[in-house]
């Protein structure tokens, strides 16, 4: 039990750090997938089978694929030359460490550290389904509405803007604007992203 926990912790945290710090964007996304899988394993270890599989299905099967697609569609022309961190990176790191310290301190000081785990409850999918259709039916409907709205919204936002030739006459407002700072480095590269 402890060995599994240690291995899972190392895999999850190291891949999370890699996902946040690697230079190559696609490597970041692949490390992120490993983090998601590690979290799913944590859920399985905590007897939440359904949530673990749902995590893999949604995050690995959908969110990671979306992220990878977005990376390929927005290839950064200057990714190899510029710094990957923003100028105020020190503040960010210190802030994150402070947050971590505060949370850990409050965890260790609280009384629930000594709370024992209750008996081995195996939660069945049937029970989850019954709860979803009785107590949680309103949130379920709301989330369905939210997902539909998000899908329509995402499609509309990401739709192709009309190109300048077709739209210049009818609607000059939709013309794609030029980058604010003209930069010779921003010529699209012809090789691989």
């Amino acid at each position: 039990m402890v060995t599994t926990f240690v291995i899972l912790t190392i895999v999850t945290l190291v891949s999370a750090i890699a996902a946040m710090s690697l230079r190559n964007l696609v490597h970041c996304a692949l490390c992120l997938v490993l983090t998601f899988a590690g979290l799913a394993a944590f859920y399985l270890q905590l007897n939440a089978q359904f949530v673990g599989f749902a995590q893999i299905l949604v995050y690995v099967g959908a969110v990671a694929i979306l992220i990878v697609f977005a990376m390929l569609l927005t290839r950064n022309v200057d990714s190899t030359r510029q710094a990957i961190l923003s100028p105020s990176w020190g503040v960010g790191i210190v802030g994150a460490l402070l947050v971590f310290g505060a949370i850990v301190l409050s965890i260790l000081c609280s009384t629930m550290v000594h709370r024992p785990a209750l008996s081995e409850t195996q939660v069945t999918v049937l029970a989850i389904g019954e709860q979803l259709m009785t107590n949680y039916v309103l949130p379920l409907e709301v989330i369905a509405l939210l997902l539909t709205a998000a899908m329509i919204g995402a499609v509309i936002i990401a739709l192709h803007e009309p190109t300048s030739e077709s739209s210049a006459v009818q609607n000059p407002r939709l013309e794609p604007s030029v980058p604010s700072v003209p930069n010779p480095a921003q010529v699209p590269r012809t090789d691989h992203p």
């Binding site: 997938v33 749902a54 690995v60 099967g61």
Partner: peptide, 8 residues
């Protein structure tokens, strides 16, 4: 869920 892994 495991089928989703093959896409990646």
């Amino acid at each position: 869920a495991v089928g989703a892994g093959s896409e990646l």
